[in-house]
């Protein structure tokens, strides 16, 4: 049997689960896109950075702070950390080949992962998020408040980012610095700081994503590893330099993967990852720029 039994209610439930799943990928994918846009680097440490900040949130909440009290503190720490990483690790190799920078972010991922094991130890932890897990009825389909919260947060993030990049001076400066460094420098944009700012914002986005994900899965140092891969896939699907694309790509991927896993018996839960990989591979071959990305034409 290739197809499992089918009912519309269950389909709607799976769809909702897929959208929730996709919103999680979208959060991290946004962070990847922001760094790619500003520095043309893919940050392989994005997942560990997000998990690290989520652990900080966990520690603060363990000290008796409420989620919403810990939230701004964690975001501030994440922002500072992101800026510091760019200044200390990425800036010295700014003009190095892609591989060098990829390797440095891989090293950072290993380092952060090890630090988490050292500081907080392995094992799963329960992380109490801001939303309740109570389910409410949406058009005959039971959906948890938490799922709705996650989706709303990721949509809110992309709207905020859109506003920031379109209407604020700093946001415009960051876009300018990404497009043409020399010209923006001549126009008075502090290019170096714009890049650092990109890393800071990405770290904040990652922290938000981590704190949204941790209540769903358990908190442990390797929490983000597979999610990061899906997030890469989502970012590539949407086109690496489009924030809207990251969210659309994330949700599209989440829905596709969930439905495939449920209804195509052959794929099940183990082959979801290879299926996602195949999906982006095919897409990249047909549309190298992704769904929303710009295809760059190189002049010889």
């Amino acid at each position: 049997m290739l197809l499992a039994a089918f009912t519309w209610t269950e389909f709607a439930q799976q769809l909702a689960a897929g959208i929730r799943e996709g919103a999680i990928y979208a959060g991290l994918a946004l962070a990847i896109v922001i760094i790619y846009r500003s520095t043309r680097v893919i940050n392989f440490a994005q997942g560990e950075m997000a998990t690290f900040t989520t652990f900080i949130a966990w520690s603060l909440m363990n000290q008796g702070l409420s989620f919403w009290a810990a939230f701004p503190i964690v975001l501030a720490i994440a922002f500072t950390g992101g800026v510091a990483i760019e200044r200390v690790l990425i800036r010295p190799v700014e003009n190095a080949p892609v591989l060098t920078i990829v390797i440095i972010t891989l090293g950072l991922a290993l380092l952060l992962n090890g630090l988490m094991s050292m500081i907080w130890g392995g094992g799963n932890r329960q992380f109490h998020g801001p939303f309740s897990t109570r389910t409410i009825d949406v058009g005959g389909v039971p959906v948890s408040v938490q799922d709705i919260g996650i989706v709303v947060v990721s949509i809110l993030l992309v709207v905020l980012l859109g506003f920031f990049f379109r209407f604020t001076k700093v946001g415009l400066g960051m876009r300018a610095a990404a497009v043409n460094r020399d010209s923006s420098r001549l126009a008075g944009v502090r290019v170096g700081w714009m890049l650092a700012l990109g890393w800071g914002i990405a770290a904040v986005l990652g922290a938000v994503a981590g704190m949204m994900i941790a209540p769903v899965v358990f908190l442990d140092p390797n929490m983000m590893q597979t999610i990061l891969l899906y997030a890469f896939a989502a970012a590539v699907l949407g086109g690496l330099d489009s924030p809207v694309g990251a969210v659309v790509g994330g949700i599209l991927l989440g829905v596709t993967i969930t439905l495939l896993g449920r209804y195509v018996g052959f794929i099940g839960s183990t082959l979801k990852l290879p299926a996602a990989l195949l999906l982006i591979l095919v897409l990249l071959l047909l549309r190298p720029g992704g769904l929303f990305g710009r295809v760059t034409v190189r002049r010889v």
Partner: peptide, 16 residues
């Protein structure tokens, strides 16, 4: 636990 990853990560970054 975690020492190997930390050492690996630091070596990698420093070398690069």
């Amino acid at each position: 636990p975690g020492i190997p990853s930390v050492v690996f990560g630091i070596v990698l970054i420093v070398v690069m």
